[in-house]
Deep mutational scan, measured.
Amino acid sequence: RGFLEKAAVKKMAKAIMADPNKADEVYKKWADKGYTLTQMSNFLKSKTAGKYDRVYNGYVIHLD
Rank of each mutant, 00 (worst) to 15 (best):
R1D: 11
G2P: 10
G2W: 11
G2N: 11
F3Q: 11
F3G: 13
F3L: 12
L4K: 14
K6L: 08
A7Q: 13
A7V: 14
A7N: 11
A8Y: 12
A8E: 13
V9N: 02
K10C: 10
K10E: 08
K11V: 07
K11T: 08
M12W: 06
A13K: 02
K14I: 08
M17R: 04
M17F: 05
M17V: 06
A18Q: 11
A18I: 11
D19V: 04
D19E: 07
D19M: 05
N21A: 13
K22R: 12
A23E: 05
D24G: 10
D24L: 11
E25W: 10
E25S: 09
Y27H: 01
Y27W: 02
K28H: 11
W30P: 00
W30L: 02
A31G: 04
A31W: 05
A31T: 05
D32V: 08
D32T: 08
K33F: 09
G34S: 04
G34T: 03
Y35D: 00
T36A: 03
T36V: 02
T36W: 02
L37V: 09
T38P: 11
Q39K: 05
M40T: 01
M40W: 02
M40A: 02
M40V: 11
S41M: 10
N42H: 13
N42I: 12
F43E: 02
L44T: 00
L44A: 00
L44R: 00
K45Y: 09
K45A: 10
K47P: 10
T48Y: 07
T48G: 06
A49R: 12
A49I: 11
G50A: 05
G50D: 07
G50N: 09
G50Y: 04
K51H: 06
D53V: 05
D53R: 07
D53G: 04
D53P: 01
R54V: 14
R54H: 13
R54T: 15
Y56E: 02
Y56D: 02
N57V: 09
G58N: 04
G58P: 03
G58D: 05
Y59G: 00
Y59V: 01
Y59M: 02
Y59I: 03
Y59R: 00
I61Q: 14
H62W: 15
D64A: 15
